[in-house]
Computed example of a mutant assay.
Amino acid sequence: MQYTIVTGMSGSGKTKVIRYLEDMGYFCIDNMPPMLIPKFSEMLTSVNGKFNNVAFVVDTRVGDMINELLAQIDDLKQKGYDCKLLYINADDETLVKRYKETRRMHPIENTNGLLASIRQERKMLSALYEASDYVIDTSHLTAQGLLQELKEIYASGDTKQGLEINVMAFGFKYGMPLDADLVFDVRCFPNPFYIDELKHKTGNDKEVQDYVMSFPKSVTFMEKLEDFMKFMIPLYIEEGKISLTIAIGCTGGKHRSVTMTNKLADYLKSCDYMVNVSYRDMGRE
């Protein structure tokens, strides 16, 4: 099990960080008291590997208990856990501006004002800053820039940029998928449904695949679709997309769409993308 402890300055963007980590598949808990970390780690370990990546946000909202955090991190490491400390930072001017815009109260109450509270907090966190494995300064980062920094740290090494691609086959007669980012209509290709020996098979059967791909226009379609993906997917990654759903539809969602979905999924997997395949309507009659 891998742990990431997120800490840092109030107003630096820890909430955005935890949301991005959740999108990357992390189990996240915000505002975790350090003394509860051992109990939570035992509880999460007891559920048979259900939680592989865990992130806790621990900051000065817990008061003086923040001073216990380094000891708890050392304890996790001694127990054999992979535990990293991620410190989110921003300069004083940026933090003052953000608090003025949001009008939220700073967790450190200093009678000398907001800037004094920020400086007091920075001093409280100085040991954590020095001990951190990673530091991200968000002073001049856009939301996209922050996401890119996190991807460089956490994206899986065997997939590209941590992007998850869902390729779905569906039948138009059952309605369009509402969650699709890209939809392709393959009803223009010859339908195996009208071939007696293929009617009751699916695009997962070689006979159907061979029939669908026996037409030059089917081969040309797949070549152009692969070329389109080669161009578009890096743009989605650059834009910061975490999940992409591609839907391919035929009339019933059983023959042509399943064949094309499998072909596209195989191509994307060969490009080292993380790919999930589903056949929404294949079981329907």
Rank of each mutant, 00 (worst) to 15 (best):
residue 241 K to R: 09
residue 14 K to F: 06
residue 243 S to F: 06
residue 131 A to F: 00
residue 203 G to W: 01
residue 192 P to H: 13
residue 209 Q to D: 01
residue 1 M to H: 12
residue 124 M to W: 10
residue 114 L to G: 00
residue 274 M to E: 02
residue 112 N to M: 15
residue 34 P to S: 03
residue 63 G to K: 12
residue 34 P to M: 02
residue 225 L to M: 05
residue 266 D to M: 15
residue 53 N to F: 15
residue 88 I to Q: 03
residue 126 S to E: 12
residue 152 E to S: 10
residue 233 I to Q: 00
residue 87 Y to R: 04
residue 31 N to C: 00
residue 124 M to F: 11
residue 214 S to H: 02
residue 216 P to G: 00
residue 230 K to Y: 13
residue 227 D to L: 12
residue 156 S to A: 07
residue 57 V to D: 02
residue 231 F to N: 11
residue 134 Y to L: 00
residue 250 C to A: 02
residue 139 S to A: 11
residue 149 E to K: 04
residue 241 K to N: 00
residue 189 F to R: 01
residue 210 D to S: 08
residue 279 Y to I: 05
residue 157 G to R: 11
residue 5 I to M: 14
residue 7 T to C: 14
residue 170 F to P: 02
residue 234 P to L: 08
residue 55 A to G: 11
residue 275 V to E: 04
residue 104 R to W: 08
residue 107 P to E: 14
residue 90 A to K: 07
residue 83 C to P: 14
residue 50 K to C: 09
residue 3 Y to N: 09
residue 143 A to P: 03
residue 279 Y to D: 00
residue 47 V to N: 12
residue 60 T to G: 06
residue 189 F to C: 00
residue 135 V to I: 15
residue 279 Y to A: 03
residue 190 P to C: 10
residue 223 E to V: 12
residue 219 V to T: 14
residue 86 L to F: 08
residue 122 R to H: 06
residue 48 N to P: 15
residue 263 K to M: 12
residue 38 P to V: 10
residue 201 K to G: 02
residue 224 K to E: 14
residue 165 I to F: 05
residue 97 K to G: 10
residue 170 F to S: 03
residue 190 P to A: 10
residue 44 L to R: 04
residue 276 N to G: 08
residue 190 P to I: 08
residue 39 K to M: 07
residue 179 D to W: 07
residue 207 E to P: 12
residue 122 R to W: 04
residue 27 F to L: 09
residue 269 K to A: 11
residue 194 Y to L: 03
residue 85 L to S: 06
residue 24 M to K: 09
residue 124 M to P: 02
residue 66 I to C: 06
residue 264 L to T: 05
residue 7 T to N: 11
residue 92 D to N: 13
residue 253 G to H: 00
residue 270 S to Y: 11
residue 98 R to E: 07
residue 147 L to E: 03
residue 210 D to R: 10
residue 39 K to R: 14
residue 128 L to T: 04
residue 182 L to C: 09
residue 81 Y to E: 14
residue 2 Q to T: 14
residue 210 D to A: 10
residue 257 S to C: 07
residue 19 R to G: 13
residue 29 I to G: 01
residue 252 G to H: 01
residue 198 L to R: 02
residue 186 V to W: 02
residue 77 K to D: 10
residue 197 E to R: 15
residue 154 Y to H: 05
residue 105 M to N: 15
residue 132 S to N: 08
residue 225 L to T: 01
residue 112 N to G: 13
residue 245 T to I: 05
residue 147 L to K: 01
residue 262 N to E: 14
residue 27 F to M: 09
residue 199 K to I: 05
residue 157 G to N: 09
residue 28 C to L: 10
residue 57 V to K: 05
residue 191 N to A: 12
